[in-house]
Nucleic acid binder design. Structure first.
Lengths: 160, 160
DNA sequence: AGTGTACCCGTAAATCTTTGCAATTAGTTT
DNA sequence: AAACTAATTGCAAAGATTTACGGGTACACT
C-alpha cells in the first residue's frame, strides 16, 4: 500500500481530516529519507517548493505524524527537536552522537528486544517504543585529538 | 569526599570559578534527590530560599554540571528539559514513561554495557554516555482502560 | 448540491531556552 | 593589599516551540 494512502486511512480511522498541509509535510520527509529534519528545515524545504505552511502547523503536523507512527522524534541535544521517517517494517535504529563534531552515526540493529521483554515482565509496563542515544567521540575526532596531542609533545620537546 | 568539595576540585581542574550560584544550583538537586527538575523548578526552589539567580545562569549552570558529571539531562518529551543527580558510583538508570498519564518510572539496572562494548568494537566510537527512554502504558493505565472497555461493552449489551 | 458541525489553519502571544553584551567578580600576580 | 586578567553574571534580545483564538475548510448528513 502506498504511504499516502496509508496516511489517509490512518487519518480516517482517527476521524481526523485529510489536508494538503498534512500530505505536504509527509512528502518532505519522504523526499529526504535518512535525514533528521527540524521543524525549521521542513519549513524551508516547503518554501522552496512554493508551499507556504505556517510554523505552528508544521509543529502540530510532525507531532501528529509521530503519534500515527510515520515519524520518530530524535533529540541529539543540539537545541532542536528532529524527526525522521520511521519505516514500519524495519526495526528501530539508534544514534551515535559525537560530542566533539556533532556528527550523527546510525546503528542499524535494534538489539533491545530482549531487554524490553525483561522489563515488561518485571514492571508490568506495556512498552510500545523506545529511544536510545549514545554519546561519545567518533573515530575521526579521536584521530584529530591524537594528532594534536603528539604535536603538543613535539613542541614541548623542542622547547627543552 | 564531600560533593561540594568535589565540585570545587572539578572547577579548579578546568580553570573555572567557584561561585555561590554554582553551589546553590547543585544544592537544590542534592535536596531533591530522585526528582527530575526543570530549570524553572530550580529557579522557583531557589527563590523560596531567598536566593535569586537569573534563569540564564541556571540554564548555563545545569549544563555545566552535566558536563562535569554531576547531573544527567533527561528528556521525557513533555516540552521541557529536565536534570537529575547522577550518582557517580552507581550505574546509569533508564526511564519508563507512561504515554497516557505521564508518570515516570525508573529502571535501576543499566544492562547496556555489553551493547556499548559491541558498538565500540564495530564502529570505533569511544562511547562515554547514553540515554535510553522507554515509552508505553503503565500497569495503572492498563487497568483503567480495561475497566473502561468492559463498561463500554456492558452498555452496548444493555442497549441491545 | 446545500447545510451544519467539528476540525484545522494561520496569526499573534506565551513559554522555554540560548546568546550577546557590559558590568561585576574570582583568583592570580606583583 | 593593589592591580590585572579572564570568567561569570544579569539583562535584554533572539531563537525554538507551544498555545489561544477566530475565520476557513473537510466531510458527514441530508
Amino acid at each position: 500500500m502506498k504511504i499516502y494512502e496509508k496516511l489517509r486511512n490512518e487519518l480516517k480511522k482517527r476521524h481526523l481530516r485529510i489536508t494538503s498541509q498534512r500530505e505536504a509535510v509527509l512528502s518532505i520527509f519522504l523526499e529526504n529519507q535518512g535525514e533528521h529534519l527540524t521543524a525549521d528545515e521542513v519549513y524551508e524545504k516547503l518554501s522552496h517548493k512554493n508551499s507556504h505552511i505556517s510554523k505552528a502547523t508544521i509543529y502540530r503536523t510532525v507531532d501528529l505524524l509521530k503519534e500515527m507512527g510515520f515519524l520518530s522524534k530524535v533529540n541529539f541535544g543540539d537545541g532542536m527537536e528532529r524527526y525522521e521517517v520511521k519505516e514500519p517494517n524495519s526495526h528501530q535504529h539508534h544514534h551515535l552522537i559525537c560530542t566533539k563534531c556533532g556528527r550523527i552515526y546510525e546503528i542499524k540493529e535494534d538489539l533491545l528486544e530482549e531487554l524490553e521483554k525483561l522489563i515488561e515482565e518485571k514492571t508490568g509496563f506495556k512498552i510500545v517504543d523506545h529511544q536510545l542515544n549514545f554519546y561519545g567521540i567518533c573515530p575521526r575526532c579521536q584521530a584529530l585529538s591524537e594528532e594534536k596531542e603528539s604535536k603538543k609533545k613535539a613542541i614541548q620537546h623542542s622547547i627543552k
